[in-house]
Amino acid sequence: MKKYKSIIFDIDGTILNTEKMNLIPLKQLIKEEKNIDMNYEDLLFALALPGKKTLEKLGFEDIESSYNKWVKYVNEYEEGATLFDNIDCVIKDIYSNNILCGIVSSKNKAQYDIDFMPTGLHEYMSAVILEDDTMNHKPHPEPLEKVIEKLKINPEDAIYIGDSLYDYKCAKSCNMDFGLALWGAKNPKDINADINLKNPSDLLKLIID
Score class of each variant (00 low, 15 high):
G102F: 03
I159K: 07
N75S: 12
N22P: 05
S65K: 09
P50R: 01
E79M: 15
K189N: 11
I191A: 15
L206S: 06
L165E: 10
K5G: 14
H140K: 13
Y166R: 06
M135C: 15
K152G: 04
K53F: 01
D177A: 10
L83P: 12
I114D: 09
M125F: 01
S164V: 04
I159F: 09
A81G: 11
K109C: 07
I24S: 06
L55E: 00
I63A: 00
Y77K: 09
D88W: 11
I103Q: 04
L121D: 02
L204G: 10
G102L: 06
Y4T: 04
D88K: 14
F60E: 02
T54N: 04
Y124M: 02
D42V: 10
D85E: 12
S106P: 00
L197H: 05
A110Q: 14
L44H: 06
A158K: 01
D10S: 00
C101K: 05
L165C: 06
L49C: 04
Y4D: 03
K152S: 13
L165I: 15
N187S: 10
I15A: 05
T119R: 04
I11L: 06
M176F: 04
N35C: 05
F60A: 02
V147G: 02
K169F: 05
N108C: 11
I36P: 08
E33N: 08
S96L: 10
E123A: 07
E41K: 13
N108F: 08
P143V: 14
P143M: 12
